[in-house]
Design a protein around this nucleic acid. Structure first.
Lengths: 364, 364
DNA sequence: AATCGACGCGGAAACGATTTCATGATATGC
DNA sequence: GCATATCATGAAATCGTTTCCGCGTCGATT
């Protein structure tokens, strides 16, 4: 591998000068610069960021820790982070924590070992203790989608409380009186914020809050399905369910359909976070959508400003608004008397007669 | 940041010994090892992979270049790569090329600068010249999902030809006689393999190949839509379309619906690559599915074996089989007289009457 | 004419680990 | 009992850059 010394020799200058050219330092004679640039081109020289980082103590890389790159919400966040970082010349390491604090810990240690200049993280637990590795070493950190307690740090969030409130208010407006929520772990701010929004909507409407209708588990389809099953199996089944994220919603749908119920006639459903292709192909689920891409961009920008010493002095807490998209799973169009549309569709693997069909349907 | 020297001092040994402990070298006295480990724990020492890499000339990192992390096919591949790399102690850089050769070139140079130990890439062009940066420097490389010409290198592929053939054979069996294909750029092996499979199916069935029914563009929704529009606008509209990947399929669907046609009654549709959530939520599209996760795992494993010097001497070309999933967009259930199911469904934003509905539907 | 600042450049040290080689102590073989 | 192998450890060199500091030259200022 050719080094800066090879280039220097070929250009008849010292390595320092080559370094200056590479880094666009001002005090270089144009002729010298040209000579060096030619040598670089001829040798196809690509500097070692490893050596550069060792000496300069900056790696120009960020670590991004998120639950699962397979979830469209997170891929979109990641895309925003990457696009932004890229324009500033930063590389991004993406790490899947799977909501597992141990995995998260290992990745944080890796990030420190790699000497990432900064870390973006959707922490799997709201206790700042989990981020000690970063805090102790003063690693610039931004939390994405989730807050932590015990360490005031930059954060970029969606308006979980507001989004949840809007969804539940919508259900209430449609006449629902027994509304359940299936949320994520109580140790994540996002899960709790969404429960808070749910509570607020009920209270504002003067409705009682039944703790039995509040279920918590993981932000995963499996957990959503299990919780929904137990909820539906219990007596006094709710007429609507609010799923606190898209993965949970997927599980909830399975649970509802498995019970022979229909959405939204038997059980209405609303959820947080949209699906990408799914909603394009099959715009069914009523959702509160966070601006995922913008959240990624904002988080990266905040972190990069911090790195440049240009950020605000106080940690910033950026909260981006959610958008409510009313589709069909809430039964809105069915009940409001608005345009009620029916679209005959085939469904895989289940026999259906007339309109008494299982599953995702609305009577014509 | 604490260094190996701090640890050495605290443990009363030399840095070399600390290094030996960190790297699980055999020849270390158990007592010494214990002392060192204690010092490491007390100081919370995390070694600098930067310094380590500079000296050892291995970064234990891989670069993964793929078109778009937002596409579920690629996220799944990425997940396979990351999971596998992680178990071997390797980190992964993910880079979005957006099918743009210039961007790809920049990322390849970055990968070399970062001194990634190996590169996994879905090259945006089948000409090996684009990978010159890697070849010249002897960077171990595996292509994923695509072959290149002019450099025999490890590759992990889905059986594009076979999958395409199966899809088109299925359409032929359903009675279609005018079948179009909308593929990706002719400069990617995957796009061409799928056209080849399409051709083979026609030829085997003794059907003529009409070049006018073969369209090529980008593996993107926009391109798919544009090509489908022009295809449908031309006289003698095909009765079925084969979209060469999921993104194209999305665009094709839009184009078909925009023309007031129905799927599959007016135009049947099959595609390569599945959707994740979408197919769970709405199992509509008939597809040939590549084992994306396994492809990622296999590619990573191949590369890591190569790095360990344990790989096969000759470059390996691993081709994984595709699975055909027959759903509804092909009209299969409609025409074969199998279970024909109808599911009334609401559709967002479009007025529909009776069964003469626009869009994704099947008459009851 | 002496002084000064800016400019252009290079020598040497430094970054934090690993690698190589050397050393003394202890165990093994004959 | 002596040569030899093995073990445990450390000193010094090294990886490829950047940083720090210094030096000569040149034009402008006093």
């Amino acid at each position: 591998m050719t080094t800066i010394i090879d280039v220097a020799r070929r250009a008849g200058v010292s390595p320092v000068t080559v370094s200056r050219v590479m880094n666009r330092a001002p005090n270089v004679n144009p002729e010298t610069r040209a000579k060096v640039e030619q040598a670089i081109a001829e040798l196809g020289y690509l500097p070692s960021t490893v050596a550069r980082s060792l000496r300069s103590k900056r790696t120009r890389s960020l670590a991004l820790l998120l639950p699962d790159i397979t979830n469209t919400f997170w891929t979109t966040v990641a895309r925003g982070v990457e696009d932004t970082a890229q324009t500033f010349g930063y590389a991004v390491f993406v790490c899947n924590t799977d909501e597992d604090c141990q995995k998260q810990q290992r990745y944080l240690e890796l990030a420190v070992s790699q000497r990432a200049d900064g870390v973006l993280i959707a922490p799997c637990h709201n206790d700042a203790a989990a981020l000690r590795v970063l805090r102790e070493r003063g690693v610039p950190t931004v939390t994405v989608d989730r807050r932590i307690e015990g360490w005031d740090v930059d954060a970029v969030l969606g308006d979980s409380t507001g989004g949840a409130r809007a969804l539940v208010q919508h259900l209430i407006a449609l006449g629902h009186r027994r509304i359940a929520v299936i949320s994520g772990p109580a140790t994540t701010s996002t899960a709790e914020d969404r429960v808070t929004g749910y509570r607020e909507a009920l209270v504002q409407a003067g409705m009682p809050v039944d703790d039995n209708l509040i279920r918590r588990g993981q932000f995963k389809a499996g957990a959503g399905e299990a919780l929904a099953r137990s909820l539906l199996a219990a007596g006094n089944c709710p007429s609507a369910i609010f799923a606190a994220n898209n993965a949970i919603a997927l599980g909830v749908i399975d649970a509802i359909l498995a019970g022979g119920r229909r959405i939204p006639q038997d059980v209405a459903l609303v959820a947080f976070d949209d699906f990408a292709d799914a909603s394009h192909l099959f715009p069914f689920l009523t959702v509160a959508v966070q601006p995922a891409y913008e959240m990624g961009c904002a988080a990266a920008r905040l972190l990069l400003e911090r790195l440049a010493g240009a950020g605000p002095v106080q940690p910033a807490h950026i909260v981006l608004p959610c958008r409510l998209i009313v589709r069909h799973s809430c039964g809105s169009r069915l009940r409001t008397g608005g345009e009620t549309l029916s679209l005959p569709l085939m469904v895989e693997g289940s026999k259906v007669e007339g309109s008494k069909v299982a599953g995702l349907n609305v009577d014509a």
